[in-house]
């Protein structure tokens, strides 16, 4: 089976002040990668004008682009409009669902969405007490359940989970431990481990580190722009050479 070259980045935080800058950096991406995955925080404030900049920067590339939103993209309560706008521009936006990208006869399955927080096993919030606390934890639990279903239903040769929030602590190293519950949740890893995946891509933790692994052995990569410091990173699946 042909190797797949997965380009990934997150936290590009585009706005009017960066119009045209990111696009320049990804010109020629088709020579390096078969698909571009973008792990959320596409904008700064989640406004429509910012989303238009995102659409301009990411649309019309010679390779498919699959994206999820991040917490910043929800800030102006326009998340659904942003999703519609990006989809109209030809970008596949996952909102707790899966998609199959055919690449030269190889089916790449990508499932995911924004994700959410709650913390990690042993030091996490529980669905107990005040309604606000229960709602916080329930949000992540419901997302994880939808991802589990989406992964199960994917009929693909390779599967990748694309998220904004982190599934593990490994890739948060460098962030203050006190804020880990706001950076991710073990429930996201649990969903991926239950159904299996080749790779888990996320962003959100700007001060974190790139590489980690879920308890079930799925490789995790934090591709937040300030972490990878490149326009994108390329991961090759199924083979020694791309």
């Amino acid at each position: 089976m042909r190797e797949l070259r997965i380009a990934a980045v997150a936290d590009i935080h585009l706005g009017e002040d960066l119009r045209g800058h990111y696009r320049k950096k990804i010109e020629g991406i088709e020579r390096r990668a078969d698909v571009l995955l973008v792990g959320g925080d596409l904008t700064r404030h989640g406004t429509i004008p910012e989303a238009q900049v995102v659409a301009e920067e990411l649309s019309g590339l010679p390779i498919p682009v699959v994206a999820v939103l991040g917490n910043h993209d929800y800030h102006s309560d326009c998340d659904q409009e942003i999703i519609d706008l990006l989809r109209d521009a030809g970008i596949v936006v996952l909102d707790d669902e899966g998609t199959v990208v055919p690449i030269d006869g190889v089916r790449l399955g990508v499932a995911g969405g924004k994700g959410f927080g709650g913390g990690f096993a042993g030091k996490c919030a529980s669905e107990f007490g005040e309604p606000e606390t229960k709602a916080f934890v329930r949000h992540t639990k419901e997302i994880a359940e939808r991802w589990r279903r989406a992964l199960k239903e994917l009929d693909a040769d390779h599967k990748i989970v694309l998220s904004h929030y982190s599934p593990v602590k490994d890739t948060l190293m460098g962030e203050p431990p006190e804020i880990y519950p706001f950076l991710g949740s073990y429930m996201l890893a649990e969903a991926a481990d239950a159904e299996g995946a080749d790779l888990f891509i996320h962003g959100h933790a700007h001060a974190g580190t790139e590489k980690g692994v879920t308890p079930g052995g799925i490789r995790v990569r934090n591709v937040a722009l300030p972490v990878i410091k490149h326009a994108y990173t390329v991961y090759c699946l199924n083979g020694d050479h791309c």
């Binding site: 070259r5 722009l225 326009a231 390329v234």
Partner: peptide, 13 residues
């Protein structure tokens, strides 16, 4: 300022 560099080496998983 974050310097966004051109993509570097790929990783083989």
């Amino acid at each position: 300022l974050v310097e966004v560099r051109e993509p570097g080496e790929e990783e083989h998983l």
